[in-house]
């Protein structure tokens, strides 16, 4: 099923349609003559879901929620399009013996698209060197992780910002591949005291996604690897990778119900103890207000 989904996803993502024809193709008319949507935007809507989460063999029920906003705008200063995805107030909480919570105040990607990227050398007559990449800014603010079974304490990534280049340079917000350095500050608070670490662009970040034109399929993967430096000294190598697949199963009152499958690996960065772990999850979610009319 996964392979079939990916094949469909790739096939549909490769097909570009004009906005008018796309809008028409996204609507069906029922027997009473009323229109209903058959396309959805995986980057838009109010998300509320539940599922099963497995961490190192321990199963637990999880809840997730968040606000997704996807916008496109044309820069006034540069006259080129931006493809922006904003994820606000994202929360994932799980129960069981290893209860925990991950909350993110804001996570976004802002990609500026150029049909023909370049580097300008400011000589008397400007020289233009091809630079076949879009530039993406990927900020994340207030990412909190609380693991009850580890005892009192929490990990807060106050801010992270990635400066990514995107060789795919898609003309829509449905496909992206950003790779580049990221800077971040993390505070680990425990009864032993606070520990600050900073990664001053010493981490490599990857963020990629692919969505079908009708938005029924969505694939997202991200990862980072690199070093962070402690305020009190010490250098820490860490790596993270996660991938998720979404499929709209059906819609109730035009609000899609989505099957979400995800997996993640964290290397020497999980929790206060900087552990390594695998997690996997599957669940259903309602993504309200994400229909494309």
């Amino acid at each position: 099923m996964l392979a079939l989904g990916l094949a469909l996803l790739l096939a549909s993502a490769a097909t570009e349609a004009s906005p008018d024809s796309e809008a028409e193709a996204c609507l069906r008319t029922d027997e009473r003559g009323e229109q209903f949507p058959i396309c959805f935007d995986p980057g838009d809507g109010l998300l509320l879901g539940t599922g099963l989460r497995v961490r190192d063999g321990e199963r637990a029920q999880s809840l997730r929620a968040g606000v997704l906003i996807r916008t496109g705008r044309t820069s006034r200063s540069k006259g080129t399009p931006w493809f922006n995805s904003h994820r606000l107030l994202g929360v994932e909480a799980w129960g069981g013996e290893q209860r925990g919570l991950i909350a993110t105040a804001y996570d976004g990607t802002l990609r500026r698209h150029l049909e023909e990227g370049f580097i300008l050398l400011p000589t008397a007559r400007p020289v233009r060197i091809p630079f076949p990449f879009d530039v993406t800014l990927a900020p994340r603010l207030g990412h909190l992780e609380r693991r009850v079974w580890e005892g009192p304490g929490w990990t807060l990534e106050t801010a992270r910002v990635g400066l990514l280049v995107d060789p795919v340079r898609a003309e829509t917000g449905r496909m992206w591949l950003g790779v580049g350095p990221a800077a971040s500050h993390t505070l680990r608070h425990s009864p032993d005291g606070d520990e600050h670490t900073v990664s001053p662009f010493t981490t490599l970040m990857l963020d990629t996604g692919l969505e079908s034109a009708d938005g029924l399929w969505a694939l997202h993967a991200s990862g980072l690897a690199g070093w962070s430096l402690g305020f009190e000294g010490g250098t820490y190598f860490r790596a993270r990778a996660e991938a998720g697949l979404e499929r709209v199963l059906f819609a109730v009152q035009d609000q899609p119900v989505v099957l979400q499958v995800s997996g993640a690996y964290v290397h020497r960065d999980a929790g206060l103890a900087r552990g390594s772990e695998w997690t996997a999850g599957a669940g259903l979610a309602v993504r309200a207000f994400s229909a494309r009319w």
Binding site: I119, F131, V135
Partner: peptide
């Protein structure tokens, strides 16, 4: 000093 501009940045 501006050294160069990448995609006008």
């Amino acid at each position: 000093l501006i050294l160069l501009a990448i995609n006008d940045q």
